[in-house]
Design a protein around this nucleic acid. Structure first.
Length: 774
RNA sequence: GGGCAGGUGGUGAAAUUGGCAAACACGUUAGCCUUAGGAGCUAGUGCUGCAAAGCUUGUGGGUUCGAGUCCCACCCUGCCCACCA
């Protein structure tokens, strides 16, 4: 291999470091550009080649923007609290603080040898007390604003991790982290009222320049639906139900309530024992199990009145009804809801069609024309809804699938929740932040499932800051997602110990212009962070409603076998080894060349060799005489510029290859060589810097201007000649010729296929195509 | 069950958005060079065919002078959500 990548990579990384080349100044005459990577979670195994795909892309974009004359902020940090880090530490019998420090060091080394242009002086870790001080501070602001409440409802419990999990942390009915089947367990949890922001989270999505599929995922996650709340009178307390199909009210043949519903405790129930047994059984089941087969039990002795026709209908407790959605009770319309249909079949309940249809053996769920609905028969669903609602005095209501955010974990390795429980004063916020995580030897979960912090008496038992009476600290910690909700703000002002962020700097840098990271965060990190940001906006800490203007997600890189890279398959490829063998520039350029940025692709040990060959040839380029290829140069400048802008790096690289292949056979001037190096620089920064220096070109590659391209008019043009749409010939003629002239030339070329007489019609597009239809 | 993305050579892929399908690269074949080749260079390489020529973008239909691209139906793969009333 003609160039020594090991030497060159090291040399330039050292020079960039010594000269502080990538140090970013706050404020500048240049326009600002904030480009951000989703910061990594430093696990024990280190990065595999899939992780840096996004980092390399932002690096290319960032270097491109710098050369284009922007003041670029491109920072990197680490998200290191949470279960995986704690489990890793437990397994390896070291303290998580220790393992996290080691892992971060390793990650940073791995990132540095790729030659990324981060300003490391702005780095941060979510586990650093100077950082989580402000995570805790924001939490307390939410607490003061009444956005946080305690709840004792049954939560998803992982018996192995011994912690409560939000629905988002589940994989079906299993714990996402350890694959253990979860159970329902009532535990006192802190919960954030993210649902209060549901509408804004939904509405503000519209303005964002995000991929449509990610927006759609968020919309579905928030899950807005409009309907009505109808009150059904019973012989006990009335039951409110939520429905989106009030037009089917005449078809309601029973009420179904969730096992958690109040009415289950009614004294009028005749079969109390059975009902209680059913309720108890249901509450222990995870939701998935509840969804597998529809079961229920009638509340004997209880009846409801259908408000539209006073019909007396039975009431069932059924665990297919979810307590946390709508009102926890539904009116069942078997003819028009598949779930109710199945239930009715099983328990032999009335199935009454009220929307015209020919369906048999299943429910018809579409809108349509009402039948069997007294004076409303004949109306169309939408119209009927308003009228029926008016009649039964139903209230319009908007419901969301989004649930409040269970914010506490019964674990050691997280931000301590800065609250104090006092018998007299209730819950009191901590005054001295950061509330540091105490150092302990043993941080195993307690047998009761409570946080390990519970065992540290000296930390837990304190005096109430209000009344000086005996009080206890909250021992739950925050979930893994907490720290990543606002880290992008802290890069802007990472050493500020007075404020979360200096407002002047915030106004200068925010919002993030471009955010790049995995699509798997579409519904968790990206919703939580947007929520957190909106809260900070509401209390005047930030000036923008949305944190991330533009978003792109890299496609996964799978192993050479096409399977997801994992220890289990033994197909993990380590970037260090690849860089060792082929150099950082070949690694970077190959990751961009392998396919479209947002598409999953399998790694290939062989294909990277082509990139290395390309770079070797670049290294050997020298000024020489030959034919002029100015046109191709202009075309390539245009292509590479546009492709970088659009994150189409694969075709940008291929354009550079095409240019190089031509250059080898053509005239190369000093000017052209410089342009080529500038175009290649974002992809292969080490090599281009080296060549630039070796050729004794002035200055440095990244202090150059990005080349502008000129549109060059072609004098000659190629015209496709078709007969009946099939290509039969190709003409190379002067540009701008009119149809009559082209016809003459073209006809002589296609004598084999047709004659002038047989031509019925001619389709002509100037400078492009002529098609003879016969 | 719902949503989203996708289906093009032996492989990764490209196609100016309706106008030469397969650019670029990997692999491979032949030759050169070499003591050697897991180096380099030259030429070839979608399929069928000796050739002329024909065929080819998951399947079937449609629109069009012309379809990988637009429309309809279906099949397959991947990801996400999933009793959301």
């Amino acid at each position: 291999m003609p160039y020594n990548h090991k030497k060159i990579d090291k040399k330039w990384q050292r020079i960039w470091g010594q000269k502080n080349t990538f140090k970013t100044q706050d404020f500048s005459k240049k326009p600002k550009f904030y480009i951000l990577d989703m910061f990594p979670y430093p696990s024990g195994v280190g990065l595999h080649v899939g992780h840096p795909r996004g980092f390399v892309a932002t690096d290319i974009y960032s270097r491109y923007k710098r050369i284009k004359g922007f003041n670029v902020l491109h920072p990197m940090g680490f998200d290191a609290f949470g279960l995986p880090a704690e489990n890793y530490a437990l397994k390896n019998k070291i303290h998580p603080e220790e393992s996290v420090r080691k892992n971060i060091k390793r990650y940073r080394e791995q990132l540095e040898i790729i030659g990324l242009d981060y300003d490391w002086s702005r780095t941060l870790s979510t586990t650093d007390p100077d950082y989580y001080k402000w995570t805790q501070w924001t939490f307390l602001q939410m607490f003061k604003k009444g956005l946080i409440y305690q709840s004792l409802e049954p939560i998803n419990w992982c018996p192995k991790c011994k912690t409560g999990l939000a629905n988002e942390d589940l994989e079906g009915d299993k714990c996402e982290r350890c694959d253990t089947k979860i159970i329902k367990k009532p535990i006192k949890q802190w919960v954030i009222k993210i649902t209060k922001y549901a509408d804004r989270l939904l509405k503000d999505l519209e303005e964002l320049n995000w991929p449509e599929n990610i927006k759609e995922l968020q919309r579905n996650w928030i899950g807005k639906s409009e309907g009505y709340v109808i009150e059904f009178k019973t012989n006990d307390k009335p039951v409110s139900v939520f429905t989106t199909r009030i037009d089917t009210l005449f078809g309601a043949s029973y009420l179904a309530i969730a096992p958690e519903h109040e009415l289950n405790k009614s004294s009028l129930i005749k079969n109390k024992k059975e009902v209680q047994k059913y309720v108890k059984k249901s509450l222990g089941k995870p939701d998935i199990e509840r969804s597998q087969e529809k079961t229920g039990i009638q509340l004997k002795g209880i009846f409801a009145n259908n408000p539209v026709n006073n019909e007396k209908i039975p009431v069932f407790t059924a665990d297919y009804v979810l307590s946390y959605y709508g009102t926890g009770a539904v009116m069942a319309v078997p003819a028009h809801d598949q779930r109710d249909y199945e239930f009715s079949k099983k328990y032999n309940l009335k199935i009454k069609k009220v929307i015209k249809n020919d369906f048999q053996n299943k429910a018809f769920e579409n809108f349509g024309i009402l039948i069997n609905s007294a004076s409303f028969s004949g109306l169309e669903s939408k119209k009927a809804q308003e009228k029926i609602a008016k009649l039964v005095k139903a209230e319009k209501k908007i419901t969301y699938k989004l649930k409040d955010w269970v914010f506490s974990r019964q674990r050691y390795w997280g931000e301590p929740i800065p609250l104090i429980h006092c018998q007299k004063c209730g819950v009191v916020p901590e005054k001295n932040l950061p509330l540091k995580l105490p150092k302990v030897k043993s941080y195993q979960s307690t047998k009761t499932g409570e946080s390990p912090l519970k065992n540290i008496n000296s930390w837990v038992k304190i005096k109430c800051p209000n009344c000086q009476g005996p009080a206890e600290r909250e021992t739950n910690t925050m979930p893994q997602w907490a720290g990543s909700c606002w880290y992008y703000l802290r890069y802007i002002d990472n050493k500020n110990d007075k404020k979360l962020i200096d407002p002047r700097k915030e106004r200068y840098w925010m919002p993030v212009d471009f955010y790049v990271g995995g699509a798997e965060h579409a519904t968790r990190h990206l919703i939580y962070a947007r929520f957190w940001h909106k809260f900070l906006y509401d209390i005047g800490i930030v000036s923008e409603k949305e944190p991330f203007l533009k978003l792109k997600s890299p496609g996964m890189i799978s192993g050479t076998d096409g399977r997801k890279m994992s220890k289990r398959w033994g197909n993990v490829i380590n970037p260090d080894q690849v860089i060792q063998e082929y150099g950082a520039d070949a690694f970077r350029t190959y990751e961009m060349f392998m396919g479209p940025f947002n598409q999953e692709t399998a790694w290939s040990d062989k294909a990277i060799k082509g990139i290395r060959r390309f770079l070797d040839k670049v290294y050997l380029l020298k000024e020489q005489k030959g034919k002029d290829i100015e046109k191709l140069f202009q075309k390539t400048i245009k292509k590479v510029t546009q492709d970088i802008e659009e994150f189409k790096f694969n075709t940008a690289v291929s354009a550079l290859m095409i240019l190089l292949n031509e250059m080898e056979k053509s005239r190369i001037t000093k000017k052209n060589l410089k342009i080529f190096l500038i175009l290649l620089h974002p992809f292969a920064p080490h090599l281009t810097c080296e060549i630039w220096e070796k050729k004794e070109f002035a200055d440095n590659v990244f202090f150059q201007k990005w080349p502008e391209f000129k549109e060059i008019k072609e004098e000659k043009t190629k015209i496709i000649v078709q007969v009946n749409g099939k290509v039969r010939s190709l003409l190379e003629i002067d540009s701008g010729l009119e149809q009559i002239e082209v016809e003459k030339i073209a006809l002589s070329k296609i004598e084999k296929w047709t004659t002038k007489e047989r031509v019925k019609k001619i389709v002509f597009i100037k400078d492009k195509l002529i098609n003879f239809v016969i």
